[in-house]
C-alpha cells in the first residue's frame, strides 16, 4: 500500500489540517494509503522510505535546512503544501528586514533562538515534485493530487488566473461591477475563486499566476482607490516573496 508522510516546517498547521478536514473522504484516503507519519493525526510513526511526502511550512532555521534533505532522501514523491512551503509564507516578511531586530523586539531572550535571516520555500532547498498553493491549500486540490498519484496520472493543477474560475462559476466580477481591489487577474487559480464568490476581492494567497502583468494590475488597484502603500501591503501578505517581482513592477 502507498505510504504517506506529513511533515511540518515553519507554519501554522492549517494546511496539514486540510487533510484531516477531508472528512467525507478521509476514510477512503485511509483505505488507499498507509499513513506512516502524520503527527497531527497519530503518534504512531512508521520508518521510511515513504512513497509520498506532504511538506508544510518554510525553511527558517539551520536545523530545518538540514532536515528537509533527509525528508527528500526518504521520499519518492515530495509535494509542498501551502503558501509557507511554496513561497516562504507570511514569515518571509523578514527577508526584507533585519531578523535580529525583529527577534529582539519579540523575544525576551533572543539568544535562545537559532534562526536564519530568511524564510524560504522548500523548493529553494530540495527538488519538489508538485506544489499546492494557497493559505490554506484547497482541500479539493489535495484530494485531486493524492488520487492522481494513486491512479498514476498527472494532477490537474492549473496555473492560469483566478478569473477563469470566477467566470466558470458565474461570479460577478467585483472589480468591474463594484470597483473593489482584487488580485484575481494576477493570482494563480486553484481555490475555486472562493473570495470573489463571497463578494470580496482576491487577496492573492495562491501567489502569482503563470504570466502576471504587475503594472496593469497596479493600474487596477489604483483605480480602486489604493495608494502605493496599500498596494505594497496587499502583495506583502501571504506570498510576499512569490509576488515580489509582480509587486516590484508595480512600484
Amino acid at each position: 500500500m502507498t505510504t504517506l508522510a506529513v511533515w511540518k516546517f515553519a507554519s501554522c498547521d492549517g494546511c496539514q489540517l486540510s487533510l484531516l478536514d477531508c472528512e467525507d473522504e478521509l476514510l477512503a484516503v485511509a483505505g488507499r494509503v498507509r499513513i506512516a507519519h502524520f503527527l497531527e493525526a497519530s503518534r504512531a510513526v512508521l520508518p521510511g522510505p515513504y512513497d509520498v511526502s506532504l511538506v508544510e511550512g518554510s525553511i527558517t532555521t539551520p536545523a530545518d535546512a538540514e532536515r528537509i534533505h533527509a525528508i527528500r532522501d526518504a521520499s519518492r514523491v515530495l509535494i509542498t503544501l501551502g503558501a509557507c512551503a511554496t513561497a516562504g509564507g507570511i514569515q518571509a516578511l523578514r527577508n526584507s528586514a533585519d531578523v535580529a531586530e525583529y527577534a529582539s523586539a519579540v523575544y525576551a531572550r533572543p539568544d535562545y533562538l537559532d534562526t536564519l535571516a530568511t524564510s524560504t520555500p522548500i523548493a529553494a532547498h530540495v527538488d519538489v515534485d508538485y506544489e499546492l498553493h494557497g493559505c490554506p491549500i484547497d482541500k479539493g486540490q489535495l484530494l485531486e493530487t493524492i488520487t492522481a498519484l494513486l491512479a498514476g496520472r498527472k494532477p490537474n493543477l492549473p496555473a492560469h488566473s483566478v478569473c477563469f474560475d470566477c467566470k466558470r462559476r458565474n461570479n460577478v466580477c467585483v472589480v468591474v461591477a463594484r470597483g473593489e481591489p482584487c488580485l484575481g487577474p494576477v493570482t494563480r487559480a486553484g481555490c475555486g475563486a472562493i473570495c470573489p464568490a463571497f463578494g470580496r476581492g482576491c487577496f492573492g494567497c495562491f501567489g502569482p499566476a503563470e504570466t502576471p502583468n504587475g503594472p496593469a494590475e497596479a493600474d487596477l488597484l489604483r483605480a480602486a482607490g489604493m495608494s502605493e502603500d496599500d498596494i505594497r501591503r496587499l502583495y506583502r501578505t501571504f506570498t510576499v516573496s512569490a509576488f515580489a517581482e509582480v509587486a516590484g513592477d508595480a512600484s
Partner: peptide, 13 residues
C-alpha cells in the same frame, strides 16, 4: 500587451 492581464475574462464572457 502592456495593458492585457491575460486573465481570460474577455473570452469567458
Amino acid at each position: 500587451a502592456s495593458r492585457c492581464l491575460t486573465c481570460g475574462n474577455c473570452t469567458m464572457v
